[in-house]
Design a protein around this nucleic acid. Structure first.
Length: 495
RNA sequence: GUCCCGUUCGUCUAGUGGUUAGGACACUGCCCUUUCACGGCAGUAACAGGGGUUCGAGUCCCCUACGGGACGCCA
């Protein structure tokens, strides 16, 4: 049997280091066994999936040096590799389960579902949707004929236990009472993760599912689906979750998680991948620096340790420095730096700003240094303004950050539109409103259009600098945060 | 609230019954050096706690504590 593994990102946001982490281990496992590594796009969430995000994820994973044998961009015999293009298939499988008595149509309203959850919680049960949900056949037919929206839910045993075999943890036992009647087909006709994942993994011949630990509790649902269909279940392996410094699951609120940010800050892809390979894993000889090829050659999934590793920026920076010093010739260094940011393509958009302002070429360095930096060394006094209270400054930064975090299409124009609307909603003059944004992003109010700068710097760096500025100013206490959040919500709806 | 998973220096880890518990980042000191960085050397620092099993437990078992995760028509 040929080993086949996969990474199945959901194109709903910025390329995440966690995705790359899981992809890395899947690729290593497949290569080590002479098998194939597949990339599949799980875009069943119609509301949140975007083509831009999909492209960004593919680009980022490829930037890191990962290579999949099959995928939406490279093709393969098991396509299509985009779940939105397989939608009819899932429906057929879901209906097959209804016919075989393993699933049923469900018409419950959100209010009814909430009531079920509350009732179960009160009884000290897991609040998942479960119990007497099925309707008589004629009632189902009547409601369907009437055009009522429905979902298909899987049936789950009321008692007994489900045993899951995990490559690293051995047998995990989960009581069936903990497992809810999972929705398989949503009312929009799209499958949920659980159905689509099982169907695709089977249809694509996936033999080993290496995924994050967050999935371990839903493994019984998957086990059950494989049984209902009469399919062999792939071997499961749940990786530890990457953590923030405080031990919680890695999140962009507390850590830079976007692969693009590391690219923009001038990390070498080899170093980032190397660092991810040191998360929960080590080489047999414990060397710190190794290439993807070396990792693949020495790979052993059983060397994964289960404690959730903290994603330590300091060590990543050290490792990147090591890569620069030890692996780059002077020629390669020049090429890398040139490609990174000082290429003609990168510089071109800056020329209009620079040419009109400099008297000598040497004026460029201090003027444009913020365009080539990571976090800026800003101080609270830099944000003092003769007309703006510090409270207002903090609100401007916070609101701008929230607004820009919600922005899906990043460009000079969208950023400008966002900020202008926000300034209007806050009743501030655009010039005053922009002051703290200038300081946060450019380090000084005396620069060219900060909106242009943000367009060029990209969402990750721009947002990170706003966040940094907010921290420098002390941020908001928990109490204040609630109030400020309310104010922001009011601004948003009031427009 | 219910359940699941985890727990070696601050952090990343080595360790699969017998080790002075090793390495790396960070930190501190010294050396190199016009400075800084790099490099070299040295130092501080860990088996969560309690019970077993065993001649012997970081390693095996149980309990407790702590941490994390899941409980969505998100994945």
């Amino acid at each position: 049997m040929t080993v086949r593994t996969r990474i199945a990102p959901s194109p709903t946001g910025d390329p995440h280091v966690g995705t790359a982490y899981i992809a890395l281990f899947n690729q290593c496992f497949a290569r080590q066994h002479g098998g194939q590594f597949i990339l599949r796009i799980e875009d069943t969430d119609q509301a949140r999936s975007t083509p831009e995000s999909e492209q960004a994820i593919l680009d980022s994973l490829r930037w890191l040096g990962l290579e999949w044998d099959e995928g939406p961009d490279v093709g393969g015999e098991y396509g299509p590799y985009r779940q939105s293009e397989r939608r009819d298939e899932y429906r057929a499988y879901a209906e097959q389960l209804v016919e075989s008595g393993h699933a049923f149509y469900c018409f419950r309203s959100p209010e009814e579902l909430d009531a079920i959850r509350d009732a179960r919680r009160e009884q000290g049960l897991n609040p998942g949707i479960k119990g007497d949900l099925e309707l008589p056949a004629d009632e189902v037919r009547r409601r369907m004929d009437a055009g009522e929206p429905y979902v298909i839910r899987m049936k789950v045993p009321e008692e007994g236990v489900c045993e899951i075999e995990d490559m690293l943890r051995g047998t995990v036992t989960i009581d069936w009472t903990q497992i809810d009647c999972q929705i398989l087909l949503k009312s929009d006709g799209m499958p949920t993760y659980h159905l689509a994942n099982v169907v695709d993994d089977h249809r694509m011949g996936i033999t080993h599912v290496i995924r994050g630990e967050e999935w371990i509790n839903s493994a019984p649902k998957h086990r059950l689906l494989y049984d209902y269909f009469g399919w062999d279940m792939p071997t499961l392996c749940h990786m530890p979750l990457l953590r923030n410094e405080d031990g919680t699951k890695l999140s962009k609120r507390k850590n830079p998680t976007s692969i693009d940010l590391y690219e923009r800050l001038g990390f070498m892809p080899e170093a980032v991948l190397n660092f991810l390979g040191r998360m929960g894993w080590s080489m047999p000889d414990e060397r710190e620096r190794f290439t993807l090829d070396e990792m693949q050659a020495e790979f052993d999934i059983h060397r994964v340790s289960l404690g959730g590793p903290v994603f330590d920026q300091a060590k990543l920076r050290w490792l990147n420095g090591l890569w620069i010093r030890e692996t780059l010739t002077d020629e390669a260094f020049m090429d890398r730096v040139g490609d990174w940011w000082f290429s003609r393509d990168q510089l071109a958009p800056l020329v209009p700003h620079l040419k009109s302002r400099v008297e000598t070429f040497s004026d460029i360095a201090p003027m444009a240094s913020f365009m080539f930096s990571g976090m800026l060394d800003v101080r609270p006094e830099d944000f003092q303004h003769r007309k703006l209270e510090e409270e207002t400054v903090r609100r401007i930064l916070q609101f701008a950050l929230w607004r820009l975090e919600a922005e899906r299409h990043w460009s000079r124009d969208t950023v400008f539109a966002d900020l202008k609307a926000l300034a209007g909603a806050m009743g501030l003059k655009l010039g005053e409103f922009m002051f703290p944004i200038f300081v946060a992003v450019a380090g000084t109010p005396n620069s060219w259009s900060v909106v242009d700068s943000m367009g060029l710097l990209g969402p990750d760096v721009s947002r990170a600098r706003l966040r940094h500025a907010l921290n420098v100013l002390g941020g908001f206490s928990k109490k204040q945060a609630k109030k400020v959040e309310k104010e922001y919500a009011a601004l948003e709806t009031g427009e």
